[in-house]
Computed example of a mutant assay.
Amino acid sequence: MLGKDLTSDRSAQRKAQKRIKGSCLIFTTCIGASLGLLRTESFEVVIVDEASQQTEPASLVPLVKGCSRAILVGDHVQLRAIVQKHAVLTGYDVSVFERHYNLLQSSKIAKVIPTPQKPSSSLTSLSIAILTPYTRQEDALAAAIPGVEVSSIDGYQGREADIVVFVTVRCNTSYDMGFLTDIRRLNVVMMRAKVGVVIIGNKQTLTGTAPGADGLDEIKLVWGRLFESCGLVTLPDEENAAYGA
């Protein structure tokens, strides 16, 4: 079909349409899934690469065309889609990937955090604060766990709670720690608790290193020593996958 004008060459258009119908895999942009020869096509399975850099409306284009299974590939704490400044104010730059991850993780965490609506006899007398390095995760956790104080790490400096629950968020196969590479943030978290700290996160991401890397960074070694001093709780499979523990 190379070099053919599909808008005017009916024969080439029919051949291209036939080839599309007979294809198992179709590669296109999200917006392109609704244009041209793909306008009337439906997709049972949709794989969105770099999903964290797509706006929600863009990601929804292929997802609403008969999709029964979607696979979103990306990193929810990497750079977002580039949009106009006024669009950022309305959250237009937040991807389906990031929103779904935050909501899923928050709902899982809510199951193990005691709240006024879900008291625990051993914890009701203790103050609890949930800290996270990312403001979007802070918002999602606050909505999912009413009655418990949720804050960013930076916003909680100078304050204390009996129990601090630290949600690290980061979970990826490249062992990228993002904001957590700053050891001062870890220090702030550990110094906020009067009784104990609960860390919910992915141990492999926080302590591991990519193949071929020249040893572990100092912050990775610190996290490794921290985990060695902690008691490890293995959650059931469903929650374990969500927490990345």
Rank of each mutant, 00 (worst) to 15 (best):
M1N: 05
G3Y: 07
G3K: 01
K4C: 02
L6I: 08
S8H: 09
D9I: 05
D9A: 02
D9C: 03
R10F: 00
A16K: 02
K18T: 05
K18I: 00
G22K: 03
S23V: 03
F27V: 11
T28P: 00
T29M: 06
L35E: 10
L37D: 06
L37I: 02
E44D: 00
E44L: 00
V48T: 05
D49E: 11
A51I: 08
S52W: 07
Q53E: 10
Q54S: 15
E56Q: 12
A58K: 12
V61H: 02
L63H: 00
S68R: 00
I71L: 00
L72V: 01
L72A: 01
G74C: 11
D75E: 13
H76K: 15
L79N: 14
R80V: 09
Q84D: 05
H86Y: 03
T90F: 06
T90S: 03
S95R: 12
E98I: 10
R99K: 13
Y101F: 15
N102W: 15
N102V: 09
L104D: 10
K111E: 13
K118N: 08
K118Q: 12
S121E: 06
S121I: 07
S122L: 04
T124L: 04
T124N: 02
S125H: 11
I128K: 12
I130D: 12
R136H: 12
R136Y: 12
R136S: 13
Q137C: 14
E138A: 09
A143R: 11
A143C: 13
A144Y: 08
V150N: 13
V150S: 10
S152T: 11
I153K: 04
R159H: 02
D162Q: 07
V164F: 01
V165A: 06
F166V: 04
V167L: 11
T168K: 06
C171V: 06
T173E: 14
D176F: 14
M177I: 14
F179C: 08
L180W: 14
T181V: 07
D182S: 07
I183L: 15
R184D: 07
R184G: 06
R185D: 01
M190C: 13
M191H: 11
R192I: 00
R192A: 07
A193E: 04
N202D: 14
N202E: 01
T207W: 04
T209S: 12
A210G: 07
P211T: 04
G212Q: 12
A213N: 10
A213M: 10
D214M: 15
G215L: 07
D217L: 12
D217A: 10
E218G: 14
K220R: 15
L221Y: 14
W223P: 11
S229C: 14
C230Y: 09
L235W: 07
P236M: 01
E238V: 04
Y243V: 04
